Each structure stands twice: as C-alpha cells, then as structure tokens.
Amino acid sequence: MRSDEAGFPRYAASYDGMAKFLHWLVVILIAAQFVIGWTMPDIHKGTLPTGLIAWHLGVGAALIAAVVVRIVWRLTHPPAPASLSPLLGVVSRITHALLYVALVAVPLLGWANASSRGWSVKLFGLLPYPGLSPTGSPVGHAMGDIHGVLAWVLFALIGLHIAGALFHRFVLKDQVLQRMLP
C-alpha cells in the first residue's frame, strides 16, 4: 500500500457488494424520479394520479424502500473507513449525512402530499403504504411545495457528492471513488 506525501494511504477498502448494489439502485431510482418529475404535468386540485404522476408515485415508493434497506445495511454493515485528511473526513461525513437526510425527507414529503390528495402510494403497484396525512390536509398539500424545493437541494447535494468523487479520482488520485465502483 502506497502513501501520499502526508502519509495517508492511497488505497481504501471497497464497499461490500450489497452496499454497492443499493447505492447504484438508489442512483437509478433518483435519476428516474428527476426525469419523471421534470416531464410530468403540473399537479393541481383535481389532478388524478395517472400517467407520469402514477410512475412518479411508484418509483418514489420503490425509492423509499431502497433507502430504508440501504440505511439498515449501512448501520449493520459499516464500511471500512477511507483514509482521509481530517478536513476531508469532516466534509465527507457532513455531505453523506445531508444526502441521507434528503434521501429520506424528499420522498416522505412527496408521500405526505400524495396522501393529502387521497392518492395511494404502492410498492410495485401491490403493497400499499399507509397514508401520512389525511385527505384534504392543508399541511399535507404544503408538503408538496417543500418536496419540490428539497428535491433541488437533493440534486445539489448529489452534484457535490459527484464532484467530491471526481476530486478524489483526478486531483488526489486516490482510490476513494473505486470503493463504490463494481
């Protein structure tokens, strides 16, 4: 194992196969959600959950399940720590914590909004999730607006996460990015 000038090892142990699978599954689901979200029609009073809106609800239900499994896996199978400088370690922990918070909050807010509209959120179109807010709830409706704003925050955090991975690969030339690659 080689070290850089500061003495930090240039090689970091890889994530396990399940962690990689869940990471890339969430990436695919988030990408699908952003595409569907950008192309689906605006939601107004009386809008029915059909077409792209139904797809958004279905992919969102799958995303919630995947994120829950990913968090449980992460808590029960912690990865080997990357060898980072103290500053990069703090930035990494903060960025990852914010990503997890947004990955939980954005779908939950969308689910609460769907519930307030009387829409059913189902995993794979079969397993119904319970309502998070009563039908007609003004708070549930407001959650839809917050959902939209936080989706952009999540998008920015994902951009920061990607920039960090590329920084490790092309500037620091360490193995941090390779930890999550298949």
Rank of each mutant, 00 (worst) to 15 (best):
I162A: 15
S115A: 11
R74D: 15
T95F: 08
R117S: 03
L181T: 12
L87K: 09
T47Y: 12
G60H: 01
S120W: 10
V72R: 14
V72K: 14
V106P: 02
A12R: 01
R10H: 11
L160N: 07
G37Q: 05
V153S: 02
Y100S: 09
I162S: 08
A6H: 09
V68M: 03
R93V: 15
S3G: 11
P138V: 09
I28E: 07
L127T: 10
L22K: 03
G7K: 03
A61Y: 03
A62D: 04
P182C: 14
P86D: 07
V68D: 05
L29P: 00
L132N: 03
A142P: 07
K20R: 15
L87N: 07
W111P: 01
W55T: 04
R179S: 08
S85R: 05
L109V: 00
A156S: 14
H161Y: 05
P182S: 15
K20A: 12
W152H: 10
V106K: 00
L48K: 13
V121N: 00
L109E: 00
I94P: 02
P86M: 13
G136W: 08
L160S: 06
Y100I: 08
F167M: 13
G164Q: 07
G58W: 10
V153D: 02
A62V: 03
T76K: 11
W119Y: 14
S115H: 10
V27G: 15
S3C: 15
H44V: 13
G140Q: 01
R2G: 12
H23M: 12
H44W: 14
V176L: 14
F124G: 15
I146P: 00
V101M: 07
V171S: 14
V106Q: 00
G159F: 04
I146W: 00
R74S: 14
V69F: 08
V121G: 02
W73I: 01
P9V: 09
A82G: 11
V104L: 07
I53C: 07
T76G: 10
V59M: 03
